[in-house]
């Protein structure tokens, strides 16, 4: 909708848009600022900004008192692991649905999405018992499986919408020229599908990183990721605002930075290809 406008109008729009954006972002910014204050400064009334006592102590204390590296490592293994495993199963499925569609493909996709409609709390007890019995409780393997299955419908949907945009004629042409299935996949499909696979991967790592129901209910200590780490931190204990902010910042920073760098690819993936 780019139209010629006067500089004055552009200035008004810019100020308005930036005010709204900063207002939306403010809670994140305030959390980060509070994490660098002393506890007394963090709860000061009126709130301190320029006059605040700045310190790095909160980070040192959270780092020292908790096992942050382990939580962090668990988060990385679980989110990346479940995404890669999901892609492994989803790529063939999405590929065949996109290129060899049948009259049931649409229903199948809808059914897959409908498996996500089941509220997690509804099946908490059976999942808990299954995990206990099979020895998957509080293991990374268990969470990788659970989050993979939870996000599989989303992964298949996203890949399907990307693959659908690869023109089928190219494949036919390659086949006429005598390309084998292996050549087809390796030299034609893969290069064209890589951007779609990459942005699917990104979005699912973020979804898995932020998942907080199964990660909290199906772990205790060994396999607990950052979402469980932060949940254990929210019980108030004396002066804890600055430390809570530091822990929060440490939990969201990795994915926030990843998200910022990849937001262009994410937008496309987020819309399930349904909005262009």
């Amino acid at each position: 909708m780019a139209r010629a406008v006067t500089t004055q109008r552009k200035l008004v729009y810019t100020i308005a848009a930036w005010s709204v954006a900063l207002l939306i972002f403010f809670p994140v910014l305030w959390t980060i600022l509070t994490s660098f204050k002393t506890e007394t400064s963090a709860v000061a009334n009126p709130p301190e900004l320029l006059s605040a006592d700045w310190t790095l102590e909160n980070y040192a204390e959270v780092w020292g008192r908790t096992d942050y590296p382990r939580f962090f490592l668990n988060s990385v293994i679980i989110s990346v692991g479940s995404t890669l495993l999901g892609l492994l199963i989803a790529i063939p499925a999405a590929w065949s649905m996109a290129f060899v569609p049948s009259n049931k493909t649409k229903d199948l996709l809808m059914w897959m999405l409908s498996t996500k409609m089941m509220p997690a709390a509804a099946v908490l007890i059976p999942m808990y018992l299954i995990f206990q019995r099979t020895g998957l409780f509080d293991t990374r393997t268990g969470l990788v499986l659970a989050l993979m299955l939870m996000n599989l419908p989303v992964i298949i949907w996203m890949l399907y919408t990307y693959f659908k945009e690869i023109p089928g004629e190219i494949l036919e042409a390659a086949r006429m020229d005598g390309a084998s299935l292996r050549d087809e996949v390796l030299y034609i499909l893969t290069p064209m599908a890589i951007p779609g696979i990459a942005s699917t991967m990104l979005l699912n790592i973020i979804l898995a990183w932020n998942e907080a129901f199964w990660t909290i209910t199906l772990t205790t200590t060994k396999a607990a990721p950052l979402s469980a780490f932060i949940a254990s931190f929210s019980a108030p204990q004396g002066l804890f605002y600055a430390k809570l902010s530091a822990a929060s910042t440490m939990a969201i920073a990795p994915i926030l930075i990843l998200g910022w760098f990849s937001q262009k690819q994410l937008v496309r993936g987020l819309t399930f290809g349904a909005v262009k």
Partner: peptide, 30 residues
């Protein structure tokens, strides 16, 4: 509003999308 001609649309989008990356327990406790 953001779709209007404004300066710094890129950074604007980054600010607006940020809450989406904040995990629910953090958002709630903050």
């Amino acid at each position: 509003l953001i779709d209007q001609p404004v300066w710094g649309q890129g950074p604007l989008r980054i600010l607006v999308i940020s809450p989406f990356f904040v995990m629910p327990p953090v958002a709630a406790s903050v």
